[in-house]
Design a protein around this nucleic acid. Sequence first.
DNA 1: TTATAAGCGAGACGGTACGTCGCGTCTTACT
DNA 2: AGTAAGACGCGACGTACCGTCTCGCTTATAA
Lengths: 219, 219, 219, 219
Amino acid sequence: MNETRRSVSLNPATVKTRRCVSFCDTLGAVPTPDPGRRSERARKAILDATLALLHESGYPDLTVEKIAARAGVGKQTIYRWWSGRGAVVLDALVEEIGEAGPPALPDTGDLEADLRLVVRAIVAELADPRLSVTTRALTIETLSSETFATTMRDRLLRPQLDTIKDRLRGRVREDVDLDQAVELLIGPMYHRWMMRTGPLTEAYADGIVDLALAALRPR
Amino acid sequence: MNETRRSVSLNPATVKTRRCVSFCDTLGAVPTPDPGRRSERARKAILDATLALLHESGYPDLTVEKIAARAGVGKQTIYRWWSGRGAVVLDALVEEIGEAGPPALPDTGDLEADLRLVVRAIVAELADPRLSVTTRALTIETLSSETFATTMRDRLLRPQLDTIKDRLRGRVREDVDLDQAVELLIGPMYHRWMMRTGPLTEAYADGIVDLALAALRPR
Amino acid sequence: MNETRRSVSLNPATVKTRRCVSFCDTLGAVPTPDPGRRSERARKAILDATLALLHESGYPDLTVEKIAARAGVGKQTIYRWWSGRGAVVLDALVEEIGEAGPPALPDTGDLEADLRLVVRAIVAELADPRLSVTTRALTIETLSSETFATTMRDRLLRPQLDTIKDRLRGRVREDVDLDQAVELLIGPMYHRWMMRTGPLTEAYADGIVDLALAALRPR
Amino acid sequence: MNETRRSVSLNPATVKTRRCVSFCDTLGAVPTPDPGRRSERARKAILDATLALLHESGYPDLTVEKIAARAGVGKQTIYRWWSGRGAVVLDALVEEIGEAGPPALPDTGDLEADLRLVVRAIVAELADPRLSVTTRALTIETLSSETFATTMRDRLLRPQLDTIKDRLRGRVREDVDLDQAVELLIGPMYHRWMMRTGPLTEAYADGIVDLALAALRPR
DNA sequence: TTATAAGCGAGACGGTACGTCGCGTCTTACT
DNA sequence: AGTAAGACGCGACGTACCGTCTCGCTTATAA
């Protein structure tokens, strides 16, 4: 595979560095007005605009003002229902992923083959600059806000990890903690992706699966 | 006192160096003024102020203007020698870690015992909110800027990973890629830390070491 | 002495942009809903809330939204019957003054003594910050809207001026225009009050009466 | 001869909904940064833009944001030196009037003729919608903010009144207070203008002068 | 030994985005 | 139909920082 790792982010010399946290640690604490009166039209327009802008210009250039303008919506309508940029992005991505349905993990009976598929898919997504913008955005926001981290973990991450976890259950050494097992599979990829310590290729994905299975497989 | 803290996770054997040195060398974007005339007083004040603010209010609240004010320095003096907030933070952390000395990886001959020590130390640091601010800051900046990511990886991360890599060399299965091996050890921890998917305890550290060694150990 | 107005509280407050409006009766711009179904309870609550807020925080801080909130009324109920803040205020003040009854101008037969009384009363009211808020509010709205000005002039001001005019009739030089005569008496006070060009004292009131009578009295 | 005033006013027919404002009562209290560093270019651009917008669209449509945009200036540069819209307008008008020089009051030796000229000029200005916009704006602001009132009175009004005052000195009854005398001349006009209680014509101007002189002239 | 040019502190500048307030309109559910 | 409640699109507010740009004022060579 190629090394065309892309960069969502820009050179610090040319980019107006903005504060990474627009998310104000009040994710669940938005005054929550009566949701019955909420305009579904506005909600949808906002989430759509967010995704569009995110894919067009990346997370650092995403602003509440641009979202509002693109969505044809007043800023207040955004702040009424979300606490800030991060919260909107999270919802937008949840929506996006939700539409795509739950992550499909094949069950061929062959654990190694199945895992290889999943891990390769994740690696491919991380390696693709277009696809990984959102992951990058979520990760930044996760690091910036504890509240965001919690929500993001429960709404987006956990379901995906659980899928893998369920798949491993009963198929690995009995003394192994399943959460640790999943992280053994997932963690190295994310680390390499974030730190750019090496190429994200299919070969790499396979290597990780081999190593993980070597550790997990019943003897 | 802060001198006592050492960042196991980020320790570079190298930079005790100083002077000019900002990672803007690699950037080339800054017009490189005459380093001979640079005020050491200002440089130190800036880095100190940066660390102080970082520990007081965290990375998201850190701004160039605040650094300048706290350091009693003109903003231009910052922009003259660094390309922005991220660059200053990187230098500040390099300084901080440099003072703490190189990371000590014991060599008892017992690979498992040695790794257990290192991994436990890293987990301990990540688990401590006070200590992990800096790692958090670096990670955010890494995700935000490719240039930063490169510098950070080469100057801070690589040396540390190489220390572990060297220790593993010749002591693991021959068909294992050493970079992958290191990430197998390190990645899960960082993932759990970032995503808050579980507790960061000594037991967890030991579990990771067990799993990794199960995968790596020659049969 | 007769109180033509009462008012309370002054405070030219903070910076804010507000909309002033035209008065709706004359405007005809309001779709004139069926007045038969109008809620007297709401009407009263709105006017009361308006007066209360006016006296508490002054005209610049008075907003339609605050009136509605204080009155326990939907904003639409205000906009249905009035064209905006100014119109509500005018009605509220008409109500307030109406309750106090029409201004009584004593008729002792001594023109100078009578005028002295009236002019002193007006000066006293203008000098009292608490009482002059309402005058201030009406004047601002008058300056802002021609429609309001007309209504306000006809409903509030003219009756008062006519009272004085009637008293002067036949008691001043024959060649004098009575409207000008009244303004000669009234104008200077308002000018001094608005522009704060000097103290508003009884002595001043008397001085004005003296001057005006010197101009008006038959030789 | 130059025009002593320029000012402008709003066509009553076009008035519907407008904004009134209050001046934030901190006119003299702006933190006053070092005026030595102040950019004359920016200052001039702001005042020019303010006058232009004022004459184009009137006071109610004047906003700080528009001034900044038109002047090619950051909003902060306005707020750094003024407390708000009212303060800028005041300065702009002072500048405008300052450039025109002090109000020229002819001294023909014939007091009545001279006063007739002045009063006719004022009446003409008030009667002209285009010219009286600014007077209207200043009056609203004066009524809304005590601080504004003070500054406006001292910087704009007093000089003009003093010109008339000086002219009256020694030419009127000795027992007359000169401030009251000036207000006797000026007050009725402003009252009629504001309250729209009658036409503002030359005949009216002359009538006021006749009445005032009847009161003031030594017997 | 000056002059001279660099870095320096200070902070104003043109901007962008923030999060809030209030406008006047529109919608919903209730009376 | 009028009402209480309040969301909506909009526009302006006043603030925070961005990165750039003068200003004097040291201060360390090079003339």
